[in-house]
């Protein structure tokens, strides 16, 4: 007896997938610049508010956005980096026109006068909307950033495989 198997058409397959798979968005947050971080958190909160599960993977300069602001580093270079690139979302400056902090001050003032949410407020919203935040283990090792200097809402420290697994299940992946 031969078995007859029906193979679903791409349309049928797609409709099954879209009905069962959760909507997901994954994001690499590489930049620690204020303006790019604004984009990252606005997309994250907007997606989460649209019923999409969002994962933000913070790596390299992006770690600044989830640090609590302590100076870090243990070796000579590590300490120097901890002083020059002190963490804390409030210390993030714009990618253009920073002028040693003047630009940051100006942007903050302009954003406030236009009633735009500040970066710390946007991050608060993202946390509130259950955006999953992952810190990159390798960057933390290289930049000598200890786990304790991250904000407590970051529950996971992981590597590229974790991000790839997440992005494989996502309909879109962004690198910011």
């Amino acid at each position: 007896m031969t078995q007859v198997q029906t193979i679903p058409t791409p349309e049928e397959f797609q409709s099954v997938v879209s009905e069962t798979a959760p909507k997901k968005l994954s994001m690499v947050v590489f930049s620690g610049d204020m303006d790019k971080a604004m984009a990252a958190f606005i997309i994250a909160t907007g997606a989460a508010a649209s019923g999409i599960q969002v994962t933000m993977f913070f790596t390299f300069w992006g770690l600044k956005l989830i640090q609590d602001g302590n100076r870090t580093g243990s070796s000579l270079f590590g300490r120097a980096m901890g002083v020059m690139n002190r963490g804390g979302i409030d210390r993030a400056g714009p990618s253009k026109f920073n002028f040693l902090g003047m630009g940051r001050w100006m942007f903050k003032k302009m954003m406030r006068s236009h009633n735009v949410a500040s970066l710390p407020e946007l991050r608060e919203m993202a946390i509130d909307l259950d955006v999953r935040m992952i810190a990159c283990q390798m960057s933390m090792d290289v930049m000598e950033i200890p786990r304790e200097t991250l904000i407590p809402e970051v529950l996971e420290v992981a590597g590229v495989a974790t991000f790839i697994e997440e992005s494989q299940q996502s309909q879109s992946t962004l690198f910011i």
């Binding site: 606005i42 909160t45 907007g46 009633n115 946007l122």
Partner: peptide
């Protein structure tokens, strides 16, 4: 009123 993107949709969703 007075709120800009993304706050309106976040508030509506919540």
């Amino acid at each position: 009123e007075g709120m800009l993107c993304p706050i309106p949709i976040v508030k509506v969703a919540k």
